[in-house]
Computed example of a mutant assay.
Amino acid sequence: MTGDNEKYWYNLKTGEVEKGFESPAVDRAGPFETPEEAARAPEIMRERSRAWAEEESRDNDWGSGVSGDARDDQ
């Protein structure tokens, strides 16, 4: 297993892909297995955020008797 210092990171300030711990942790997103995956970090973060929001919405609606589709019609 490769350590995180050997993986790729997306620098949130510069938009550059880095290998290892080049910049402070607060400025990095990752780790990613490949530089191509790290370059897609903003897209991946949006996808994950959208999925988490949908999951949270379903969890909040659990047991309410109102489905997501019914809410949209109101």
Rank of each mutant, 00 (worst) to 15 (best):
T34H: 00
G63C: 14
P35V: 04
T34P: 01
E18A: 14
R28G: 00
K7R: 11
T34M: 02
A38T: 06
E55K: 14
E18F: 05
T2R: 12
G63M: 01
S49V: 08
Q74I: 13
G20Q: 13
W62C: 11
G63A: 10
W62L: 15
S57Y: 13
N60A: 15
D59Q: 13
R40G: 02
E16I: 08
V26M: 08
E56F: 08
A29W: 13
T2W: 11
Y10K: 05
M1Y: 06
A51F: 00
R40K: 09
W9V: 01
R58N: 06
E56Y: 09
D73G: 10
D27L: 11
K7C: 04
D72H: 07
S64E: 07
E6V: 07
R28M: 13
G3S: 14
G63V: 13
G30S: 12
E54W: 14
K13R: 14
V17W: 11
A25H: 07
A25L: 11
D73P: 02
E47A: 09
R48I: 10
E56L: 15
K7E: 03
K13L: 08
D61K: 15
D61V: 02
W52Y: 09
A53V: 03
D61Y: 15
N11W: 06
G30A: 08
P42N: 04
W62K: 12
D27S: 12
R40F: 02
R40D: 07
G68K: 15
E33K: 13
N60M: 15
G3E: 01
A70D: 04
P35G: 01
G3W: 00
T2G: 03
D72V: 04
S49E: 02
Y10F: 13
V66C: 04
E54H: 11
Q74F: 11
F21N: 07
S64A: 09
G68L: 15
E43P: 01
P24W: 07
E6W: 02
E54S: 12
R46D: 00
E56C: 15
E6C: 10
R46H: 01
R48V: 06
E43M: 05
V66D: 08
T34I: 05
E56H: 00
M45Y: 13
Y8V: 04
D27M: 12
S67T: 15
W62Y: 08
R48M: 10
